[in-house]
Design a protein around this nucleic acid. Structure first.
Length: 432
RNA sequence: GCCGCCGUAGCUCAGCCUGGUGGAGCGGCGGGCUGUUAACCCGUAGGUCCCGGGUUCAAGUCCCGGCGGCGGCGCCA
């Protein structure tokens, strides 16, 4: 479309310029002889002024309500009283669509209520959601950019699967033409198959988990950025994840300062994010936490409270590695020099946000994998093709999964993961 | 699976403890105002007080049961 100006560009047109802007009514204030309409588009907000002297247009403007759509033509005026310093003196409203009464008002918006989740199809228009969605877009773009810039191939794995990656109890069952199938919990196993073809692969896809989790960090459908690398080990995962995350944060700081500011997000914690990240072993973490008053025994998992306390000790994301065998899934390779631990790593986001990445070395030896599966009381037959990979030219390899929604949540400084994506799915919500 | 909380106008909530004519703000509608900033001022409409039962002269309020919803833990990304 030609001849239209985005709101953010109106100021650039400058005093006296003629512009036509398309958008929606964000605020409307009527003061007798003048109507002030704050117009919102995808780029920002600007005030338009309609004077009563312009009778037919004034009548049209009177009809508009919140979130009505409109096109206005007018002259740009420098005006210190207007938000943003510029406003549009309206000559004409060549098109408008008067909406029904918009069901979201300031009270509801302030309350951060369940109502806003019911109204999510409309609430995505809010400036807060706009800011988050723009940052999210930067994040996804930066992930692709980093992987492609570092020699990875993007691959796609199926969403319909028949065997579990994580625990079987968290699978969503689907009726697949009369056969039992499930929605995937992770693309990891397929990525492991693909490294024998492409060596370095990544994917960004949804993962589904039927966890009955009612927390601010869990979704039943989340966006998972996963990578798998042949000939790689734990050390490589440290550098890959810290470089990837640093790159994403850098891109957001370059592209989304206005959005971060609108969200009230302080940028200092993000500016600290540079490789290398501190590396803490599980054993060290237990010591640090017990000194802080926790009472953890070796072999205990590090829970939400512990994770939070640990991240508050650092200003950077941290690498937490060498978890005990029993707290990590069967496919993690045990450390030959300390077999009770695994060559595993989690990345914990700072400021109490906690785990955003889980990964490490995978078992590449056939017999080792079979015995580990049995040790976890699982049936090797359920993992037939995954085990099969270890028969034909197996190689040491490592990989990880990044919870993109969790990363966005932390970067945006949000209280709840469901605000990190437009249409969240959790245990109790599948609409809108 | 475990712990805690809530249900009153379109929205956000007060009223419940200590039973006695259902309220406020925002939003809607009508009117006023020629520089508003979540505009303001005046007026006005709007209710299955979640449902059922009980106690009582009288229940939004007290008791019992049910339904619906929310927050957190565990698990994980």
């Amino acid at each position: 479309m030609q001849g239209f100006t985005y709101v953010k560009d109106v100021a650039k047109v400058g005093e006296g310029g003629l512009v036509t802007v398309r958008g929606w009514v964000y605020r409307k204030r009527v003061t007798g002889g003048k109507i002030f309409i704050v117009i919102r588009d995808s780029t920002g907000i600007i005030q338009a002024v309609v004077s009563k002297d312009n009778e037919p247009v004034f009548k049209k403007a009177e009809q508009l309500n919140i979130e009505s759509s409109l096109i206005v033509t007018g002259h740009v005026k420098k005006e210190p009283r207007a938000p943003g310093g510029f406003e549009i003196h309206v000559i004409d409203i060549p098109w408008s669509f008067v909406g029904w009464q918009f069901p979201i008002n300031e009270d509801a918006a302030k309350a951060d209520s369940e109502y806003l989740l019911d109204m999510r199809h409309l609430w995505v228009r809010s400036r807060m959601m706009q800011a988050v969605l723009k940052i999210r877009s930067t994040v996804f773009g930066a992930i692709h950019e980093w992987f492609r810039g570092n020699g990875y191939y993007e691959v796609q794995a199926p969403m319909f699967i028949t065997s579990a990656v994580e625990g079987g109890s968290t699978l969503f069952e689907v009726n697949y033409f009369g056969e039992k199938a499930y929605l995937t919990q992770s693309s990891q196993f397929y990525l492991e198959a693909l490294i024998f073809s492409l060596e370095k692969v990544y994917t960004i896809a949804p993962s589904f988990r039927a966890e009955k989790s009612r927390t601010r960090r869990h979704l039943t459908e989340f966006w998972h950025a996963e990578a798998e690398v042949a000939w790689a080990g734990l050390e490589d995962m440290f550098t890959v994840t810290e470089n990837l995350i640093s790159h994403i944060v850098k891109r957001v700081l370059e592209s989304n300062l206005d959005d971060l500011s609108l969200l009230g997000r302080k940028t200092e914690p993000l500016e600290n994010v540079k490789p290398p990240f501190p590396r803490i072993t599980y054993d060290e973490a237990i010591n640090i936490l017990n000194k802080k008053g926790f009472n953890l025994k070796w072999g205990d998992d590090i829970g939400a409270d512990e994770e939070k306390a640990l991240t508050l000790e650092f200003t950077q994301p941290i690498h937490l590695h060498h978890f005990p065998e029993n707290v990590k899934a069967f496919y993690h390779r045990n450390d030959p020099s300390k077999p009770s631990t695994t060559l595993s790593v989690d990345v914990l986001a700072p400021e109490g946000y906690g785990e955003v990445v889980g990964g490490g070395e995978r078992i590449y030896d056939y017999d080792e994998l079979i015995s580990k599966i049995r040790k976890f009381n699982l049936n090797p037959e359920d993992y037939q093709w995954y085990v099969d990979l270890r028969k034909y030219g197996s190689v040491p390899h490592a990989g990880f999964g990044l919870g993109v929604d969790r990363l966005v949540m932390w970067i945006c400084g949000l209280d709840h993961i469901r605000d990190a994506l437009p249409f969240p799915r959790d245990m109790r919500r599948i609409k809108p």
